[in-house]
Computed example of a mutant assay.
Amino acid sequence: MMEGRMTKTGNAATGADMAPPIQSLGDVELFWQQTQGWIASHYLSIAIACASGALIIALLYGLRMLGTRLCRREHLGHWPRIVGRAIARTNLFFIVMLAARLVSGYATPPAVVAGTIGFLFTVATAVQAALWVRELVIGIVEYRAGEEDSGSSTLGSAIGIIRLLVTAVCFIVATLLILDNIGVNITGLVASLGIGGIAIGLAAQGIFSDLFASLAIIFDKPFRRGDTVKWDLTTGTVESIGLKTTRVRSTTGEEVVISNTNLLNKELRNLAHTLRRRATLMLSVTYQTPPEVCRRIPDMVKAIVTAHDKAVFLHCCMVNFAPSSLDYELLFDVLDEDGEVFNSARHDICITILESFAKQGIRFAYPTQTTFTAAPDGTMIMPYAEAPTPAA
C-alpha cells in the first residue's frame, strides 16, 4: 500500500510540470476534485508550504519597501535610486506567485493545480520583467537627460515619446512570451509586427531621424537650453529643443529654426563652455614713427594687457610692412566664459592703448597715398608747374 501510494504521488509530481492550465469547465471540475483530495491527503505538507510561502512573501515585500526607501535617498547617487525605483515597482501578484512556485514542489500538488500555478507564474513573471526593464531604461534616460531638462519643456516631449516606445516594446515582448508559453503559434504574429514596423519606419523616416537626433542630444549633451552656439554663419542662444527642430535666437534678433539632424551634422561650436576667449587686434602705426619707438611698442602693449586682471598676454610683434602702415599683431586671452566680460575687457584694453599711444605721440595709420612725378632722367619733380614770378 505504501509503495503504491508513493508511486501514485511520484507520478503526479512528475506530470505536474507538463500538465496544461485550466482551459474549460471540465478542467475546473477536475481541478476542484483533485484539490479536495490533495488537501485531505497532504494537509500537513500544505500547512508547512503555506507557512514557508508566507515567510517568502514577507521577505520579498520587505525588499520592495527597501527599494521604495532607496528612491528617496538622493545622497546615495543615481544608480541606487534607479535600482530602487525598479524594485519598488514589484507587483504583489508576482510576489505571491513566486512564493507559490517555490513551495509548490514540497506540497506535491496534483497535475492540474501545478499546471495552473506554473501558468500564473509565467504570466506574472513576464509582466513583472516588462515593468522592471521599463523602469530601468526610463531611469537611465532621465538621468542622462538631467533632472532640469526632464522636468522642463526643453526635452520633456522627447522623454515622453521614449517612455511610450519603451513601454510598448516591453509589454509587446511580454505578451508574445505569454502566448508562446500557453502554446500559441506566434511566428505569423512576429512576422506581421516586423513587416509593419518596417513600413512605418520607411514612411516616417525623416521624423524618426530627427527623433533619434533629439535622443543624441539627450545622451551626448552637445548643448543645452541657454547655451550660445555657432555654426556656419549663425550665432545665437538656444531657446528650445523639440522632437524635430531646435530654435535658436540669433545675435541679430531673429529666431532660427533648424532640424535636429541638420544641426548635429554641422560643425557646431558651443561658446557657453569656453573657458577663455581669445582676442586678436591689429595695431597699425604710421611710417613716420621712429625705429626706437617701434621697438618699445610691444613692451608698452604687454604692460597694458597684463595690468588687466582678466587678461593673459600672449604676444605682440610687428608682422607686416603695409602700404600705408607698420602693422603689429596683438593676441591676448580673457579668462571668463561670459561674452559680456570678454567685450568689456577688450574695450578697456583698447582704450588704454589709445591713451598710452597719444601720450607717447604715436600716431595710428589710416589709408593714404602720396604721388611723386619724375623727369625723363629720373629726377623727382613737383607734380604741378611753378607759379610765374610777378613783374617788379
Rank of each mutant, 00 (worst) to 15 (best):
I186F: 00
G188W: 00
G188E: 01
L189P: 03
L189K: 04
A191F: 07
S192P: 05
G197P: 06
I198W: 10
A199P: 04
I200N: 03
G201V: 08
G201A: 14
L202W: 06
A203M: 09
A204G: 05
A204Y: 10
Q205F: 13
Q205P: 01
Q205R: 15
I207Q: 10
F208V: 05
S209D: 11
S209P: 05
D210P: 07
F212K: 01
A213G: 01
S214T: 11
L215P: 07
I217Y: 06
I218N: 00
F219D: 04
F219W: 11
K221I: 08
K221C: 08
F223Y: 09
G226L: 05
D227S: 08
K230P: 03
T234E: 11
T237V: 14
V238E: 02
V238F: 03
L243A: 07
L243T: 09
T245R: 10
T245L: 07
T245M: 07
T246L: 01
R247D: 12
T251A: 10
T251C: 08
T252A: 13
G253C: 03
E254P: 06
E254K: 09
E255C: 08
V256Q: 11
V256A: 08
S259I: 04
N260F: 00
N260P: 00
N262V: 07
L263P: 11
L264E: 03
L264F: 02
L264T: 01
N265T: 05
K266V: 11
K266H: 11
E267V: 10
R269Q: 15
R269C: 07
H273A: 14
R277E: 07
A279T: 13
L281M: 11
L281N: 09
L281S: 11
M282R: 12
L283D: 00
L283A: 01
S284T: 05
V285A: 00
T286G: 01
Q288D: 14
P290N: 00
P290L: 00
E292K: 13
V293Y: 12
V293S: 12
V293H: 08
R295W: 15
R296P: 06
R296S: 14
R296L: 06
I297V: 09
I297E: 05
P298V: 07
M300Q: 06
K302V: 03
I304N: 03
I304M: 01
A307K: 11
K310N: 14
V312H: 08
V312K: 13
L314W: 11
C316W: 02
C316T: 02
C316R: 01
C317M: 12
C317R: 14
M318D: 08
V319Q: 15
V319E: 12
F321Q: 09
P323K: 00
S324C: 08
L326W: 04
